[in-house]
């Protein structure tokens, strides 16, 4: 039987959740034995080679590219899991939701104390993904099957969850592994 395939991505996140996955220490060898990584920053595969059993989403959606990648994951993965507070709530990037987008861009590119930008131009190259009006949690954009909050979720949380999902068991985290911080 072929190994279940796992795909992962970091949308508007800090890669902390991926770091937490590496934090499972030597269990990573076990993981490499039971799964095959498909599209993921872990193996640097840029696109899906085939349909996956589990997709792990780090980060919420802050721009059009994030939305595109997230939709592609929904299309290609049987089970889609939001990993971390950014995916489940918008997280730290969503702090910008409390400030109008225009003010945010002005502060970052024009008015900020350390900004040197004599043209006062805000980057608008068509190559740059368009920013959304606010940062959205993943489940406000596509259907998400499971959520693993935490900033980041602990290595044990990720390990428990992956094991349950890959063995087809229902995912029920013990109390100590469900945290919002």
């Amino acid at each position: 039987m072929s190994k279940p395939r796992v795909a992962t991505t970091s949308l508007c996140g800090c890669f902390g959740c991926h770091m937490s996955l590496l934090d499972i220490d030597e269990r990573i060898l076990q993981l490499a034995e039971i799964v095959e990584f498909d599209k993921s920053p872990i193996n640097d595969h840029k696109d899906f080679t085939q349909r996956c059993t589990v997709g792990l989403i780090e980060g919420g959606c802050a721009n059009a590219e994030n939305v595109h990648v997230l939709r592609r994951f929904r299309e290609m993965c049987d089970v889609l899991v939001s990993v971390g507070d950014c995916a489940t709530t918008g997280g730290i990037p969503a702090l910008r939701n409390l400030v109008p987008l225009e003010e945010c861009l002005e502060e970052a590119y024009v008015k900020g104390p350390s900004v040197h930008n004599p043209s006062r131009r805000i980057p608008d190259d068509p190559e740059i993904p368009l920013l959304l009006d606010k940062v959205y949690p993943a489940h406000e954009v596509v259907k998400i099957d499971y959520h693993l909050p935490g900033c980041p979720p602990s290595a044990d949380t990720l390990w428990e969850a992956l094991n349950a999902l890959l063995s087809g068991k229902p995912l029920a985290l013990p109390y100590a592994l469900l945290k919002y911080d």
Partner: peptide
């Protein structure tokens, strides 16, 4: 939230 096992809300965030 922990006790009730809430992993993410079903409602939209209002910000």
């Amino acid at each position: 939230g922990y006790r009730l096992g809430i992993t993410a809300p079903q409602l939209e965030y209002q910000f």
